[in-house]
Design a protein around this nucleic acid. Structure first.
Lengths: 201, 201, 201, 201
DNA sequence: AATGAATGAGCTTTCATTCAT
DNA sequence: GATGAATGAAAGCTCATTCAT
């Protein structure tokens, strides 16, 4: 039992090291040697915990999404209706250092997913989950605001598209898009769907 | 005297081969050998036409942007107001094979731009140009429709974000997002900004 | 834990393999692949022990100098005056297989030192050391023989020049200059400076 | 007839270009492309004039020796005895820019001769010729000075060795050995063989 | 379980040579 | 004769993976 705990704990350490390396030098610089060094373990040990490099990357992508999902969930506590939707959308914006690094990691994996079906599937699962969660929030907000508004699924996809586009922009040009501007953009988007947001960010 | 070869035509062949390879296996799989094979030339010849691999990539990125810009410009001929805006936005959507490949190229280079300032700046220039053009179209449409609507700059940034997000999605999952869905999304977005679009796609 | 390997011993094996390869096919033929083959290891392993090819070459040059210096020092034990000078000069002559290889290494690196300041400085240090040691021996011999003879520094430089010239000759044509001839030449040179040498080679 | 003249003239241009390239970037940088560019001819034409790169190098080495021999011959005009010997030895010293470059070329070829029998043979021919010429001068000087002195052949080999050693030194460290010092060294050497030289350099 | 040495494939780049025009 | 495009081998180097200890 203890062995198993240690095993998965060590796996996690390596995955986190991988994310740090990716955010520092990009995916192309994330060699197994570099990851091992960052994790403080020997180079050869990696094959005991992962079945090849792709498995590390897949786990890292999974973890990166999990961190975002956790952040959103944590802040959603007790909120409902439009407030909950607004909160979730704001939390999904890369407004701080951590979010920016997350977007760079995301972007790195996106490009890598082309020609790498395993990674692409992993991301698709996370995307689907995120879209469904957002749909629920949208339905809740529409109900609260008594909106007969557009198809929640369509709204969710639109919001995610804009978030993804902004995320890519931030990943590439961290200093050129002020956090306030991103909030304005998402506010405008939500307003377009009938959600009159309050300015108490 | 020498073998009759059009130097710049040959260069272009190699650049196009590069674009095809990148769209097929991603930037990390776009080795000089693979590009040469795709172009149907020997591996060594590449150094006759390009000063190293980075020069091929830069040329490929430039060409990809040019193709998109040309497509949009060509179709805009004679249109004005909302029709022009709608046409441009539709043309920017990756609805066909060419567009899809273009998005894969884009995405591949986005990740590469992180940590490659030269490439990042080149992309920024294209982005700025595209945003300005879109702003003009938005102003024109707002004037025609007598809308006092939101800040054209904000609208442009929102549209581009959504287009970029959709583009990334298409790049990764070419077959999972129907062209009609993308049109719906952009229609909803435009409607949110007060532009009642007609269904004459 | 790990494979039991003496790191520095392995390094030395590779350096020695490098020296053998250089003596066989010259510096231009001393590729990393060839050195690895000569050392009986795989090509890739070299990067575990050296930071690039230049580091191997530097280490090889150092080792070659060390071998010569050690040989001269070892035989000088207990000798003084003219005997010591004569012994050192004879030892500096490439009269056996080892000496011949040493000269080939030297010659290969001489050319490489042009346009390689780092290597040139390293060689200059060795040269200066050798000249000073020779000057001391010359002073000792002059004192013992009661010679008011020429400037020891000039004598040292002359001797070294002749040794270097002979060394180059031997490096290129190992079989065309008999060891006895080289001894005759150095004897004639020493005689010209007033040192009547004995024939007890 | 004219074709033949042009042919060998073009050959000579290429050989001279080769020497210039070697003196500028060393033998390792003397690629066929660089030589062709320096000669102002197309890259492909070289195979019409030379049977492979080695033939260019051999011709270049030959020419380099010829230039030295010509210089010595030219100044020898009318001199005889010790004066002639002294003049030849002085002329063989790399005391000016041209001589220094010549030594660098020499040195580059020496190293290349290891593992390149053709080039080594070419150099051996020149060496033999030079040694014989020097022997004649030595005999002449000994006769004039009524010296029963040492074997002229031995003297010649000693002188050449010292000249070669000095040449290598100058090639590597052009600024560290004053021309006067080299003259002193050769004077001391000649004095050792009984030739009392005059100070009218 | 853990180490790091070792392998071999593959990368970009360079270059002498060949060849169609 | 002359050009420069084209080839293919080889260079130094990197890296995921395997393996003996």
């Amino acid at each position: 039992m203890s062995k198993i705990v240690n095993h998965s704990a060590r796996r996690l350490e390596i995955v986190d090291a991988c994310l740090r390396v990716v955010s520092r030098v990009g995916l192309s610089g994330a060699t197994t040697r570099e990851i091992a060094k960052e994790a403080g373990v020997s180079h050869g040990i990696i094959s005991h915990y992962f079945n090849g490099k792709n498995e590390i990357l897949r786990a890292a992508l999974q973890r990166s999404y999990q961190q975002l999902a956790d952040r959103i969930d944590a802040n959603l506590n007790g909120l409902s209706g439009l407030e909950a939707l607004q909160r979730a959308v704001y939390d999904a914006l890369p407004v701080d250092e951590e979010g920016r690094i997350g977007e760079q990691i995301e972007l790195a994996f996106w490009a890598y997913a082309i020609g790498n079906p395993e990674l692409a599937e992993e991301r698709w699962r996370s995307y689907t989950e995120w879209r469904r969660a957002l749909e629920l929030l949208i339905r809740g907000a529409q109900a609260q605001e008594h909106l007969a508004g557009p198809d929640p699924s369509l709204v969710a996809e639109t919001i995610i598209s804009a978030l993804d586009g902004l995320g890519a922009q931030v990943a590439m040009y961290p200093d050129r898009i002020p956090a306030e501007r991103m909030v304005e953009i998402m506010d405008a988007l939500l307003a377009g769907f009938g959600f009159v947001t309050t300015k108490n960010t």
